[in-house]
Design a protein around this nucleic acid. Structure first.
Lengths: 240, 240
DNA sequence: TCCGGTGTCGATACACCGTATCGACCGATA
DNA sequence: TATCGGTCGATACGGTGTATCGACACCGGA
């Protein structure tokens, strides 16, 4: 199509001007390629960097081209989230149910560490994609028939409880690690900003327990805290 | 040449940055009034309806007027979230620690049901506002000194576990109730849209446990599921 | 009382967003 | 070859958050 070839032509001889890359079949495009490109953008610069325009541009297309494959940006986000669910390896089939649930939970956490934007999506919309459902299926399958989980309701409830913990824990962890990193390379700035504010708040004496906590020694690292909390939840869903 | 406001903002959290002195100006305006107006908008039409322009318009002001009180839209969202934390009643001081944690958890859930957009913010950024810290303080205080929670780390870990569950559970519940309501008045439409899709997925036989779950009888209502899961978590954090 | 300098406020402007619209183009048919 | 029909994507629209900077209100000094 008549791209400003004419305007260009005024300055550059045709002979050495690059041809537009095979116009008739510009690029085959597919939903997968779109999602892939979007994920690359999100990994690099966060979820805000994912705009239909930028995704399209990364694929040498105009924005509206995507609407043949998606009907809404929300759908793109759903697809991205499902793609990440798809990265989570299913648990080994032979272990016991605790091991299986632990494997799934850590798998989700690690996926979120690889794709921080995934945490922004977690729990935002019901996960109905095939990979998300496979994740849920694996959770239910692990519990199904385990001792103490006889009826369907017990299995469902247990899955709900564990998933809620995992979502909340991963989200909080990412949120915290992000603000730590944002203030980032020089942490002095964060201390300078929030330190005095927190100190003053604590100095009011209205937060004694909180003061004891931040005053305490070094906290365990995030992974340990996650694993410990997970074990507590796993202990809880069996306690009858 | 006056300290640049945003430089200030970069170093000082909103909560303690002084407001500009109330001018005899057209309408007095204050951070509280701004947050109040923003919350009204969000309650009515969701978080997307909160734009600086609309908030300002609701207060008979131009958009830039708000930048005297906020340095970023994110700050407004932080303030809104903290205001909701402020609505959560502290637990009765005399009950046992389980009752206290249950009270806090249900308080947060009910606040989120009153202000659905609150769920969108939950776990998105570390809650550092005074009311959010008061909520955390109440959690820690309830656990502090309870039998079985002797050292600070045990208290911290327990709070982390419970909070993660609450955040995840509330978020998921709101997400689900929202899509149910969106397809809304005529649920036939949702069935028409997602029913066939889900049926086909389940018919593949790759989701047997899931099929059993959706095939099962009526699920308990959301509040019961939340309360049951919470009890499981509470049981888990004591199991040693 | 008037005037000049100063500092603040908010209208305007910018870059970007998601997506509805509709004209231009292309292939097939008469 | 001329016409028609359908599809695709460029353009346009109404919004967003916020940087900029001119206009203005105020205050101190002459």
């Amino acid at each position: 199509m008549a791209v400003r070839r004419d305007t260009d032509g005024e300055f550059t001889p045709v002979w050495e001007r690059p041809e537009p890359p095979s116009r008739p079949a510009p690029s085959p495009l597919s939903r997968d390629r779109i999602v892939e490109a979007a994920i690359r953008l999100a990994d690099a610069d966060g979820l805000d960097a994912v705009s239909l325009r930028k995704v399209a541009a990364a694929l040498d297309a105009g924005p509206m081209r995507l609407y043949g494959y998606l009907s809404t940006k929300t759908e793109l986000l759903d697809l991205m989230a499902d793609a990440v669910y798809g990265e989570i390896a299913p648990p080994a089939p032979d272990g016991d149910w605790r091991a299986a649930l632990r494997s799934l939970a850590h798998g989700l956490r690690e996926a979120a560490l690889r794709h921080e934007w995934f945490a922004d999506l977690l729990g935002g919309r019901p996960p109905l994609g095939p990979c998300a459902l496979a994740y849920l299926e694996a959770t239910l399958a692990a519990l199904d028939g385990a001792p103490g989980f006889d009826d369907v309701d017990a299995v469902t409830q247990a899955a709900h409880t564990v998933n809620a913990y995992v979502i909340g824990a991963v989200r909080s962890e990412i949120a915290e690690s992000r603000t730590e990193r944002a203030t980032g390379l020089d942490e002095r700035r964060w201390q300078a900003a929030n330190g005095p504010y927190l100190d003053r708040l604590l100095a009011t004496g209205r937060y004694p327990a909180l003061a004891k906590m931040v005053g305490g020694g070094p906290h365990p690292d995030a992974e340990t805290a996650f694993a410990t909390g997970l074990d507590q939840v796993l202990a809880g869903i069996t306690a009858r």
